[in-house]
Every structure is written in C-alpha cells, then in structure tokens.
C-alpha cells in the first residue's frame, strides 16, 4: 500500500499540479458550455430550470472525454507504463489509484463548482442537492469506465474519436438516471431509486473496473 501511495498517488498528484493548464481545460470547457446555454436559448427561468440538469450532465460527460485520455497516454508513450507492469505491484491496484487521482483532479473541482452551475441554470435548492448527489456518485463511474476504454485505445495514434464512440453509449444509462433524479427532485418527488441504481453501477464498476483496466493495458502493451 505504501509503495502505491508513494510511487503512484504522489507522483500523479505532483504531475497534475505541474500541468495545471491541462487540468483546467475540461473545467473551463464545462463552464463555458453552461454559460453559453442561457445566452443561446434565452434566459427564461422556467426553460433553464427544465433543461438545466441535462445540460450540466451532458457538459460533464463531454468535458470528461477531453481529460480522459491523459489517464494513461503519457505513461504509455514515455514507457512509464512498462515500468509499472514490471514493478511487481498489481496492475489493477495501480490502475485503481490512478483512477482515484484522475477523479480527484478532474471531477472533484466540478463537484465543487456545481453550486455556481446550478445558479446559472436557475435550479432550486432541492434540484441542486439531487444534482450534487448524482455528481458525487456518477462521476467516479465516468472515471472508472472511461479508464477501461482509455486502456484499450491508448496505443492508437488518434484514439480520441474512437474513445468517444466507445464511451458515450456506455454513459447513456448514467445520464438517464442522473437527470431523472434531478427532475424528480424538481417535482418534490423521492429520487432514492435513481440514486440507488447509480450507486449500484458505481459499486459494480469499483469492484470490476480495475481488473478490466489492467487487462486492457496489458493488451495494449502486446
């Protein structure tokens, strides 16, 4: 465990903070998309409230695709990935730590920014709470599932579009349940069921994704 914290966690954190601009890019993209929506479709509070949750979630998914590739891209091209695989540590554990760092640096800021986004799109407090909960449960799922696809496409020269094609269909259920939870909150209805389903998907991903990522990375090496 110590080796993973000192060797992977601290390393990825140090790297993330050294490449801040790369880190800020997806977040800026998200903020810009959400700022443009009220300007584009008119500032009617009712309309905004209606489309708000969907807009935030779609922007989150698209912006996550921008940042997803950096999970393993540099490590693959500079050979660090080979060194991980020969380090004697479990590749699944290394992958899990890398996904954790990726979530911390690219999605946690989004969760922290979400009150501002809710304000832009005129969400009520109930909707905002539901949005926050779906983001907290749903974004780790984006990271975990995304990492599998990144592992598979990392060896390709231009894997970006393929990555989007692979991932967007997979993210659709998450999008449906997350926006449905916020819609229910808008109508003062209970939304525990939607949260439970997202939570269940997250649990499944946490249990299995690291092994799938490890396998995908091994395939990419071959």
């Amino acid at each position: 465990m110590n080796t993973l914290i000192n060797g992977i966690f601290k390393r990825d954190m140090a790297l993330a903070f050294r490449q801040r601009s790369e880190l800020a890019q997806p977040l800026m993209f998200l903020l810009m998309v959400i700022t443009l929506f009220p300007l584009g479709i008119g500032p009617g509070p009712v309309t905004l409230q209606k489309i708000g949750p969907g807009v935030i979630w779609i922007a989150a998914i698209l912006s996550s695709l921008l940042a997803m590739e950096r999970l393993f891209r540099d490590d693959f091209w500079d050979g660090s990935l080979e060194q991980y695989m020969l380090s004697g540590q479990s590749v699944a554990a290394i992958a899990a730590i890398k996904v954790l760092v990726h979530w911390l640096v690219s999605f946690l800021p989004l969760v922290l920014f979400s009150p501002l986004l809710a304000l832009f799109l005129n969400l009520t407090v109930d909707m905002y709470v539901a949005l926050m909960l779906t983001l907290v449960l749903g974004t780790p799922l984006l990271s975990l599932v995304g990492a599998i696809a990144v592992g598979l496409t990392v060896g390709l020269q231009r894997g970006g579009v393929l990555l989007a094609l692979l991932l967007i269909p997979v993210f659709i259920p998450l999008l449906i349940f997350a926006t449905s939870a916020v819609d229910s909150a808008a109508l003062q209805l209970p939304y525990r069921a939607q949260l439970a389903i997202i939570g269940a998907m997250l649990m499944l991903a946490m249990a299995t994704a690291p092994f799938a990522i490890a396998y995908a990375l091994k395939v990419s090496q071959n």
Binding site: G7, K10, R11, A14, W77, D78, G79, S80, E82
Partner: peptide
Amino acid sequence: KAGINGALTAMENLRFWCAQHG
C-alpha cells in the same frame, strides 16, 4: 522508451520509480 516523465525532475522520477519497485 525510457520510462522517464519529462515534466518531473530527475530526482522525482527516480524517487517515484524506486517507490513503485519497492
């Protein structure tokens, strides 16, 4: 591929590599 990250310094690269390899 050297397995050295260009954004990290030589010392950092070696420190993290040693940590990974126990």
